[in-house]
Design a protein around this nucleic acid. Structure first.
Lengths: 109, 109
DNA sequence: CCTCTTCCTTAGACTGTCCATGTATGCAAA
DNA sequence: TTTGCATACATGGACAGTCTAAGGAAGAGG
């Protein structure tokens, strides 16, 4: 990931699902969107991004088709499936739960 | 880890360091303390705990010696080193940074 | 005795990230 | 027209860290 701020394994899927929940995008676009949304804190490694996309496609959380971008290039546009939406909700809930627990431990007297 | 709520790789070290920053403890005690502090949300797997302890000992973040517990058993008591304290601060800062970023992405309009 | 609890140890599988590298093509500048 | 840059996808291999699973030893208490 980005400048020494590695992502916690497992969170990349969630972040991608979240970005896709705002509308379909191709891989390259996802990278840019994540960088933009995180105010440059996240620069997704392509070696993490694409495997993640394939995994999620296999699992049926996202689906894709090839189209042309506004830059006139071939690109694979991904979008959430219904299962993907459920998955996002679940992961988000799980994240909230776990980060609350961690905060609890970290800030306990 | 615990009832289907797996920890994010990397966070276990931080949680252990945090627990040890409250006072020395042996492995078994760390498990219990984490469970207690997290209100039973975390049940640390021993196959994760001990490798983590050995890693951190190698890195010089913690040190240990064998003693007897109040239950009259041999146990290895771990405590933070100065380096461990610095490490904890760093990881905690990193955690705060990353979780803020993730929250930003998750909750962006 | 016999079982339960405390306590530590380690091998092996698995998952997911990172690094590095490769491909292809559109477009603009030199 | 050729050179270089930006866009876009793909993939092998290394590596770190977790989980599953199994085992061992020894005190406490029935």
């Amino acid at each position: 990931m980005a400048d020494k701020s590695e992502l916690f394994p497992g969170t990349l899927d969630m972040l991608i699902l979240r970005v896709l929940s705002r509308g379909e995008l191709h891989g390259w676009g996802i990278t840019n969107k994540l960088e933009q949304l995180s105010k440059s804190a996240l620069q997704v490694d392509e070696g993490s991004l694409y495997p993640s996309l394939y995994r999620m496609e296999d699992k049926g959380w996202i689906e894709a088709d090839w189209r042309m971008t506004e830059n006139n290039r071939r690109a694979k546009y991904y979008r959430l499936t219904r299962a993907g939406r459920k998955q996002l909700e679940a992961e988000q809930a799980q994240w909230d739960r776990m980060s609350a627990i961690i905060a609890l431990v970290l800030h306990s007297a």
